[in-house]
Structure formats: structure tokens, C-alpha cells
Design a protein around this nucleic acid. Structure first.
Lengths: 234, 234
DNA sequence: AAATATGTGTTGCAATGGCAACACATTATT
DNA sequence: AATAATGTGTTGCCATTGCAACACATATTT
């Protein structure tokens, strides 16, 4: 709700105090925009000059082919940035759509402003750049995770890889600064998708996914309770 | 062969003259290392502090699962950078292996040095940073391409998407500064893989790929001559 | 509260594509 | 030149999984 504090705690402004954030805001022409549910923020082919930061809501990175099939590439939530793969020296057309699936508030800034000599002479500029680069690296890791999943040929392997990645993320998250989230035993994983969404993310047929999950339950590999999957080690 | 000129023309040193490149070299502790064919440069789990620039040879980004299956994520060639998804504030273990598939020369630098205040007071520092970020964006786009391919359920769709991406890349490449490469008519695509490699990249079985390519030839969708695939529009 | 939309679980059917196995061609290595 | 290694093209088999269709449950909107 409170965008001010969300910005303050956004990874993009990490290791910057309020004063420095203010400075950065005067260096860059940030502007906020709201989007209604199901509105498109950016369409495939659009030229990209702005980087977006999600203050509120959920944005999908997706793409349609000419048969009308829809492919979900990534789900972006509060604090995520987007459109950054298409920035660069030459203005790149976006290869994907960004679509608001809930009502959204987005903060934009001009990528070009990053490289303009800073008139404010603020030292924090390089901290900001470093933060952005760290976010880019994180986004790349997320894309790699998706590739790892999609590389698996069998549905079960995809599920197991997905769970494995969830596990890995929980480990590093809880080792870092005290990220809340309901703390669960390490073999219990909170799945932030419903079945329909998960099937889409894993790139498989929904009914086939449900069928396979049932098989895995029958073989006592996993247990399912609502959004929590427990892995039974043997 | 001549590493000096390769460095000079590397996208990482774009818009920098020789003098500036020299300055950068004294800011950063670059060092060169050679690898033999089939040697591993970085293993899954290794902590990453260096970014690598390939001066010569080909490096695979790949991963093994515990059944011994091998998954090819990306092929990196001369001028590509690697290991950059795992850099950041917290030192990240690599999620993949980087393997030299030919004899390779690699130039490394410490990611941390990027953010140390520049003692040389060189203005080109920010140009260097910008160049690196552009490369990161490009790598992200490549990962997105791979995801787009792997998202397709049918083998034919994967092939068509792959060809489509090749087409797209040829378009933007030839519109830019005069990149040589043998100029081909737009519906003729040079495929930089053999069938075995292509199958691996598309995440499909090799014999199934060959079978499908044959079907597509029989239906006059495409023609194949060595590494050139011609798309027959109808 | 009614009506509509969205998600879940299940099943039969069909076909795509993985796998294994082979002969043959081409390329590297000695 | 001989040998080994790697890549190509082909085929039969059949498990996996996509698809369609359905009943039912749960959320959301009016």
C-alpha cells in the first residue's frame, strides 16, 4: 500500500539511505503508472526505453504464437523489475508481452539516464547501478531455473526439478537476512501456484500434471496438502 | 589468434579507445587462462567471483542431473562472457558447469572491482559498466529464446521457433553495422549446429529430430542443404 | 442469493516422440 | 593408410502425455 516504504526497501535501493534515494530520484525521471487487471503494459514488438519496477500487483511475461497458443515465461511480483532484457545501446523491440494480471502500480525510469553524467555529483549513483546489475543477475538465474525445468523430458522430472529449485531457494533465503515467510521444515515446500498455473509454468498439460501428482502420492514420493508439498525422502 | 585486437573489438570495450582500455586494465586485475579441450572451467556449486570473457574457443553452459543425464543450456563462443548470472552482493554458487569443448583462452576479471571507487579517476569506467550491462541484457535475451523454444510442446513447433529466431537474428544483425557472414536471402538460414548438437539444443531426441526434418522436407515446408535450411513460404 | 467464472479431479483415446539398434558416411587421430 | 571416433539416416516399438470431455467444487461478480 505505502509505496514510499516499498521503494525504500526495494532491492534497487539497497544500501542507500533516504537522502540518497532522494538524490537518485532527482537524477532520474521516475514516474508511476497504474494498470488495471488484464491490461497489457508492453506488447511484443514495442520498443523499450524504460525499465519497470512493480510496486504492487502481478505481471506476467508471456508470448503468443500465431496459432493463438499462450506461453507463460515468468511471473513477476512486487519488487521485481521487468523489460530489462531489451535495453541496450540499440533500442530493442520487446520479444514478449508484459501483462498485468491484477491491478498494478509500476514505477518506470529511463534506462538511458543511468549513463548520463550525474549532475548531482552523487556517489550513490554507482550503488544504484550495482543494485540494478545484481537484479539483472538474479533475473538471469530465474530464467536458468525455468530452462532447467523445461529441459527435462518427463513430467515427473519436471516436477522434481521444480521442487528441487524451490528447496534450493528456501535454503538460501532462510540463510540470508531473516526473511519471514511461514517457516517450514526443509522437506515441506510452499508452492506459490495453483495447479493450473503450475502446469503452465512447467509447460505441461494440466490434467497430465494432476495425474502425475496423484501417481507420486500413490508411490509415497510426496504428500500434498493445499499449497504445501512434502517430499518423503527414502 | 591476436588477443590484443580481439580485446580491442570486444563489445565489452566498445566506445573506448586504446588508451581508455589501458586505463581499465590497470583498474581491474584481469588475468588470462588457457583451458584444454573438455576441461571444466567452473563446476556446479563453485562460488563465483570472476566474470569470464572467451577470447578463443567454445564453452558450454551445461548441467548434469543425478541420473547422469546431461543438459545443454547454452553454447558460448568467442566474445561471449560467462558466469555473470551468479555474481552479486552475496557470493552465489554456480548452478551450472562451464566446460571448454575446444581449447580455450579466457580472460577473467573480479566482479567486485567494478564497484571499487576508481583510483585512476577514469571516466571510461562508466562506459565499461554500461557495456557489461548491455552484454547481460543480451545474455538474458538468449535465455529467453531458449525458453521460447523449450516451451513448445511439439517437435515441429520447436524447429519452427528455432528457425524463426534465427531469422529474427539475421534481420537485426544485417540492419546493424555491416556484419559480414555470407549474406543469404532472408528465407535461407545458416544453422550453426550439426544435427546432434541441434537436437541437444532443442531438447529433443536426435533421431526424432531427423525424422521430423524429413517429414518437413516431404511436405515441402523446408529444404536442407548441408547447414542451410530454406523455408518455403506458401 | 443467484449467476457466472474459474479451478479440480478423473478418464478414454490417440499420437507424438523417446529409445534402442543398426548400417553407413564422414572426420580425426595414430 | 589404417584405425578409431563421431555424426547421419532409418526403423520398430510402446510409454508418456496431450487433448477433449465431463462432473463437481470453489470464488467472484452482480
Amino acid at each position: 500500500m505505502d509505496h514510499g516504504s516499498l521503494i525504500k526497501h526495494h532491492p534497487l535501493f539497497e544500501r542507500m539511505n533516504e537522502e540518497e534515494i532522494m538524490k537518485i530520484f532527482s537524477c532520474f525521471s521516475f514516474h508511476k503508472k497504474d494498470y488495471a487487471k488484464n491490461e497489457y503494459i508492453l506488447l511484443e514488438g514495442d520498443s523499450v526505453q524504460l525499465i519497470g519496477i512493480i510496486l504492487r500487483g502481478t505481471v506476467l511475461m508471456e508470448k503468443n504464437d500465431f496459432y493463438g497458443n499462450n506461453y507463460l515465461f515468468m511471473e513477476l511480483r512486487e519488487k521485481d523489475i521487468f523489460a530489462e532484457p531489451f535495453m541496450g545501446l540499440t533500442i530493442q523491440p520487446s520479444a514478449v508481452n508484459y501483462k498485468a494480471v491484477t491491478n498494478c502500480s509500476v514505477l518506470f525510469f529511463h534506462y538511458r539516464d543511468m549513463w548520463r553524467p550525474c549532475t548531482n555529483n552523487c556517489l550513490c549513483h554507482s550503488v544504484f547501478t550495482e543494485n540494478l546489475m545484481n537484479l539483472l543477475a538474479m533475473k538471469s538465474r530465474n530464467l536458468l531455473n525455468k530452462i532447467e525445468i523445461l529441459s527435462k523430458k518427463s513430467l515427473r522430472d519436471r516436477i522434481m526439478t521444480f521442487l528441487n529449485i524451490l528447496y534450493r531457494e528456501n535454503q538460501t533465503a532462510s540463510s540470508g537476512e531473516g526473511r519471514k515467510l511461514q517457516e517450514l521444515p526443509p522437506n515441506q515446500l510452499f508452492v506459490p501456484y495453483n495447479h493450473t498455473e503450475l502446469a503452465e509454468y512447467l509447460g505441461v498439460n494440466r490434467s497430465a500434471l494432476v495425474r502425475e501428482l496423484k501417481r507420486m502420492r500413490d508411490e509415497h514420493l510426496i504428500e500434498q496438502h493445499k499449497n504445501i508439498i512434502t517430499i518423503n525422502q527414502q
